[in-house]
């Protein structure tokens, strides 16, 4: 039963990571930039939720947080597009600069306090199939599945999704066909930011104690997810997120027998998996192999 419990816990954590990873990939597909400020944007959203929740209630606060994170992401996008270069290395580095600014401010504001979201699930647990699961995680899984399903529906079935995919695959042709690159870029960043905030809310919920000032680093756990899955694959992001969540939970859950690997190996294990995947398939499990354009 313990194995099943860990697996379910891992999948639920993984579904949260999937949301972050999906945001990374949406932004990458939209603008070919890896948003290194993603962690700070997640924390910005979570901070807004934590501040507002006691006053306006959880749902309103969550909505405000999602909007704040989306706006934050759009600000980063505007900065990125202000740079007069298309060099993705420069643009990605620029997002590191934004991250330093945001993280410094947030660290200062949050100080030593722990952000709690005031979510309705609190620390209640439910028994399913002989395992005990926190209700917050069940909620997280349900919400993630809904959001991911909606994302894929929009991405594959709507006009807007077709435009996004077209610009991701071939920006120049898409531009020629009258697809507004700027709108696609803004939309992908806003979606990425919003997804990060939702993930942040669930990361703060039980069984975790809440988010402290270092929580921006947790968003980096989505980095192994996107590399395992493949940087340009939305399906890969979801798969990668689940793999990271399960790996981390399984390792943490068996910490006593894995003691020889050192304390807190759970947070490192996803990176080890990522390196192994890279050795095997440099473009990730579902990523498309890059053709050397000549």
């Amino acid at each position: 039963m313990k194995a099943l419990q860990l697996l379910l816990l891992g999948l639920s954590l993984g579904s949260i990571y999937s949301l972050i990873a999906l945001g990374f990939v949406a932004i990458y597909k939209g603008t070919k930039v890896i948003n290194m400020a993603h962690g700070s944007i997640l924390l910005t959203g979570a901070y807004v939720v934590a501040m507002l929740s006691p006053h306006v209630g959880f749902l309103a606060a969550a909505a405000a947080g999602v909007v704040a994170a989306a706006v934050g992401a759009i600000v980063v996008e505007r900065l990125v597009s202000a740079a007069r270069t298309t060099d993705h290395l420069v643009l990605t580095t620029l997002t590191i600069g934004v991250d330093v600014l945001l993280a410094t401010e947030l660290t200062h504001r949050i100080g030593s306090s722990v952000l709690t979201m005031g979510d309705p699930w609190k620390d209640r647990q439910t028994e399913i199939m002989g395992t005990v699961l926190p209700q917050a995680r069940i909620g997280a899984t349900a919400v993630s599945v809904l959001i991911i399903a909606a994302f894929f529906l929009v991405f594959h079935k709507t006009n807007f999704g077709v435009r996004m995919r077209a610009s991701a695959d071939d920006p120049r042709t898409a531009a020629l066909m009258g697809i507004d690159q700027r709108r696609v870029a803004l939309a992908s960043w806003a979606i990425g930011g919003g997804l990060a905030c939702v993930a942040g809310i669930f990361l703060a919920a039980f069984p975790n104690p809440g988010l402290d000032q270092t929580a921006g680093l947790i968003a980096l756990n989505a980095i192994p997810a996107i590399i395992i899955g493949g940087l340009d694959s939305t399906e890969g992001a979801v798969l990668g997120g689940l793999i990271v969540g399960v790996t981390q939970t399984l390792v943490d859950g068996n910490a006593s027998s894995l003691h020889f690997l050192g304390e807190g190996f759970g947070t490192v294990a996803p990176y080890v998996v990522m390196l192994l995947v890279l050795l095997w398939r440099p473009s990730g499990l579902l990523g498309s192999k890059e053709l050397n354009r000549v």
Binding site: I34, I227, G262, T267, Y271
Partner: peptide, 22 residues
């Protein structure tokens, strides 16, 4: 390029783990 940058994060976190545990 950028892809190596994010992959190299692995070394930072694995390194940090080793420094604290070895």
């Amino acid at each position: 390029g950028v892809y190596l940058g994010v992959a190299s994060l692995a070394l930072v976190f694995i390194g940090d783990h080793v420094l604290k545990n070895a």
